[in-house]
Design a protein around this nucleic acid. Sequence first.
DNA 1: AAGGTTTTCAACCGCAAATTT
DNA 2: AAAATTTGCGGTTGAAAACCT
Length: 151
Amino acid sequence: MIKMKEEKRKGAWTEEEDKQLEWYVSLFGERRWDFLAQVSGLKRSGKSCRLRWVNYLHPGLKHGRMSPQEEQLVLQLHSYWGNRWSQIARKLPGRTDNEIKNYWRTRMRKIAQERKMNSSPALSSYNDTNFYFNEPQSRTEREEEEEGGNY
DNA sequence: AAGGTTTTCAACCGCAAATTT
DNA sequence: AAAATTTGCGGTTGAAAACCT
């Protein structure tokens, strides 16, 4: 509504920006991002503020590598739900959709890479498409919705 | 030591869904 | 009710870190 024709910053967040954001979130809560972006004086969009908060600053987030158990859970849940990162993340306390998505991509690459290695160097008659889409649909859409003890 | 290559992962974008006016 | 604004999602990117050679 109040449109500020203010130049927006982009790229990595600085520590000062983080502090500032934390302060304003503590003041106003983790919502009304657009409003918060303006009133805080941060030269960031509301969207950017939200992202920074939910993916990094939010208390209770685990940082660093996922444990093998977590990784396994991701695999499992992905096999029912596909790329519904947000939904998957809800089952992994302290982990974000973004993080999980990143993990998945990394894994994908690793698989593609490995595959390249053990398949015969000279003539591989397969090609790569569809390699990793494990065909999970033996369990039909019944698990779709979240609440209710699934998995 | 240095410069080129690969990997990582935080942050961007566009669109969709939700909420507000 | 409908238009406008805000929030949330998932795919994708690129700068910096890590890894060669």
